[in-house]
Design a protein around this nucleic acid. Structure first.
Lengths: 342, 342
DNA sequence: CTGTTAGCGCGTTCAT
DNA sequence: ATGAACGCGCTAACAG
C-alpha cells in the first residue's frame, strides 16, 4: 500500500549515524564534512554529501547546541502583536543581526498583551537557553524584568525602567510630548487637552511632559484617560465632548491610533479637524501619512531602535558585560494637516 | 571587586546535577520532582524545590527534547511582517494552541518578504525539529513547499497550491473578487478597473475572477498592475489617471492597502471618492473601518484561518497523517462609504 | 594527512 | 530513591 510507504518516509529524521553508515565512514567524518573541514578527502566528502542528499539529513540544532554550549537563538517578546510599530522595530533587529551576527536566530514569541503571556514566553526562551531577551514594550513589572536581566542579557524597547541590569532603548517621550505640545502652543492654542495612553509604555512620561509644558506656558491642562488603541482615543474624545464647558481647540493624543479614534468621534459629532479642533498624535505609524488621515504626529525611529537594541545585546554577548545601557533616541515633529493656527 | 562577583552570577546556567548535589539527592529524583511525580517524599520534594529556587535552575529544553524525541515547538514563518492581516492569523493560531495543545511553543520567524529569508527560516525550524511548519503566505516556489510538506506537517495560509502533501487554508479569493465586482456592477458601474496585487498571494485568482465576472456581465475589463502595498495601489491609480480615455467610475483594488493608496492618489488629483469614483478593497484590515477611510471591502476571517490551520496541523501531528487538507473559508462583503450607485 | 574511537553535555527512563 | 544507559552531534586524542 503506497500509503504505508509514504507514512514511513516521515519516520524519525535520519541521524548523523545513518549518514555515516550509508556513506561507509564514521560519524566523526560526517561531522567534519558538515563543518567544511579542509582535511577530508574529496572521495569521502562526495560520499558523505551524497548520503546526506539521499537521506534528506538535517543536523539537529538541539544536539549541536547541547555540546557547543550555546543555543544560537535570541528571544524577542512582543507585548502587542498588532502594533505596526513593533513590526518595524523587529525589522531593524533582523537587519542588524543579518549583517553582524548571521548565525543568530531571532525567534519571536507573542506575549498576547498580557503579563502572563510574557512571563510564559520568557520562561520558554530561558529554557531554550536563548542568548538574550528583547522585549518590545512589556506588561511585566519592573522587578521581573530586572531579575531576568540578571540571568541573561536583556533589552527593553519603548519603555523606561530604572535599572542597570538591562539595556533600555526608548525614544525620548518627554521631548516628544513637549514637541507636540509646543507645536500646538506655537499655533496659538491655549485650551489643549491630552488623551492619555493609559498604562501603555511611555504613556505616563508623555502625560507628565504635556502637563509640565502647559504649566510652563501658563496654561491649564485638561487630561482624560485613554489607551494606546483606537477605542481608547475614541473614549477619550467622548469624555471631552461630554464634559461641561467649551471643547478644547486642540488635542494631543498619546499615540496615532488613539488620535485616529478621537478624530473619528469628533467628526461623527460634527466637529471638523483641524478647523474646529487640531489633533496631534505620536509614533508616526505608516497609515498616519495617508491622505485621508494625514496626521500631524511625532516620529519614533522604529527601525533604528531595533538596530540599536540588537547592537547593545550583541555587544554584551561578546564582552560578557552585565551592565545595561540606556539609549534615548530623538523623536521628530512631523507636521501634516490635522493641526492649524488659530 | 563587586563587578567580578556579578560577572560570575551569569556563569553557565546550573544543571540538574547542581540541583541534585545541593539538595543531597540523585538527579533522577530531581527529574521526578520537576515532573510532579507523586512518588517523592515530601521531605525530598521540599529540599529539591529549595535547591531549584536557590540556584535559579531552569531545565534545558534542548536536553529534554533530545531524549523525549520531540521538540515541542511549531514553526510559523511570515512572508511579510508588516501585514496586519498576518498578525490576526497568528492570533488565531495562538488561541487554538493555548487551548488544545498548551505544551506547544508557537515560534515565529520572519521571512522578510524574500524567498531566501523563508528558505533560511524553514531550514532553521527543521534543524530545531519543529513539529510542523506554518507559512503565512509565502514567496517560496510550489515545489519547495511541497517537499517541505513531505518532511513535516506543513500548512500554507492565504495562498493556493495544488498539492496533497500540505494543508491549505485560504479564503475563497475567486468568490470574494466576484462579490466585490458584482457589488460594483449592481450599483450600476460598467467602466470598472482592477488594480492587481502583483505577485502577492491570491492576487492572480482575484484578478482572474474579476475578469471573468466582468465578462459574464458583458463588460470590458480594465486591469493595471499594482502590488499589495500602498505604493502599488498608488502606482496603479496613477496609471489609470495617465491613461487616455475616461476614468473608470469604479475601482476594485487587490487589497485594502492598495485601495487606500489608490484613494490617496485619486483625491490628490482632485477626484472625489465615492462621488467620482467608487473603490472596493479586499481584506478588511482594522483601519479600513476607521471613519476617515471607511472602506467598502471584502472581509477575510483572519483569526478563523489561523485557528483552522492550527487545528489541521495538530490533528496531523496526532494521527501521523501525511495527507494535507484544503479548506476554503468564505469571505464577506462589507459595504461602507467608498462605493455608491450611479 | 585522513579517518577512527571514546567521551561529553543534560535530562529521562528502567531496572535495581 | 538511585545508578546506568541513552539520544545526537561535536571534539580531543589517537591510529593508519
Amino acid at each position: 500500500m503506497p500509503d504505508d510507504i509514504e507514512q514511513e518516509t516521515r519516520q524519525r529524521p535520519p541521524t548523523i549515524r545513518d549518514v555515516a553508515e550509508l556513506a561507509g565512514v564514521s560519524k566523526s567524518l560526517v561531522s567534519l564534512v558538515l563543518r567544511a573541514s579542509p582535511k577530508v578527502s574529496d572521495k569521502s566528502r562526495v560520499a558523505v554529501e551524497e548520503a546526506i542528499e539521499e537521506l534528506g539529513y538535517r543536523p539537529s540544532a538541539m544536539a549541536r547546541s547541547l555540546v557547543n554550549r550555546h543555543s544560537g537563538v535570541g528571544g524577542i517578546i512582543t507585548s502587542n502583536a498588532k502594533d505596526v510599530f513593533h513590526a518595524d522595530v523587529v525589522d531593524g533587529v533582523s537587519s542588524y543581526i543579518n549583517e553582524h551576527a548571521p548565525g543568530l536566530v531571532p525567534l519571536i514569541l507573542h506575549g498576547n498583551h498580557e503579563e502572563e503571556g510574557e512571563k510564559l514566553a520568557s520562561r520558554r526562551f530561558m529554557e531554550m537557553r536563548a542568548e538574550w531577551l528583547m522585549f518590545m514594550g512589556s506588561a511585566l513589572p519592573d522587578a521581573t524584568l530586572e531579575s531576568l536581566g540578571r540571568e541573561t542579557p536583556t533589552a527593553l524597547i519603548g519603555r523606561w525602567l530604572e535599572s542597570d541590569s538591562i539595556d533600555i532603548v526608548v525614544n525620548d517621550d518627554r521631548a516628544g510630548a513637549a514637541m507636540a505640545t509646543k507645536h500646538l502652543l506655537d499655533l496659538g492654542h491655549r485650551r489643549i487637552a491630552h488623551i492619555t495612553g493609559g498604562r501603555g509604555n511611555g504613556a505616563r512620561a508623555r502625560e507628565a511632559s504635556f502637563r509640565r509644558t502647559m504649566q510652563e506656558a501658563g496654561c491649564e491642562s485638561t487630561v482624560v484617560e485613554g489607551t494606546y488603541l483606537q477605542q481608547g482615543g475614541a473614549e477619550g474624545a467622548r469624555q471631552l465632548l461630554g464634559a461641561s464647558g467649551p471643547l478644547p481647540t486642540a488635542i494631543f493624543a498619546a499615540n496615532d491610533l488613539a488620535a485616529i479614534g478621537a478624530i473619528d468621534v469628533l467628526k461623527r459629532a460634527g466637529h471638523r479637524v483641524p478647523d474646529d479642533v487640531s489633533v496631534v498624535g505620536y509614533d508616526d505609524i505608516p497609515i498616519a501619512a495617508l491622505a485621508p488621515i494625514d496626521l500631524t504626529t511625532i516620529n519614533q525611529p522604529a527601525r533604528q531602535m531595533g538596530q540599536t537594541a540588537a547592537r547593545l545585546l550583541c555587544a554584551r554577548r561578546n564582552n560578557g558585560s552585565l551592565k545595561g545601557q540606556r539609549v534615548l533616541l530623538e523623536p521628530k515633529l512631523i507636521v501634516r494637516s490635522t493641526t492649524r493656527a488659530i
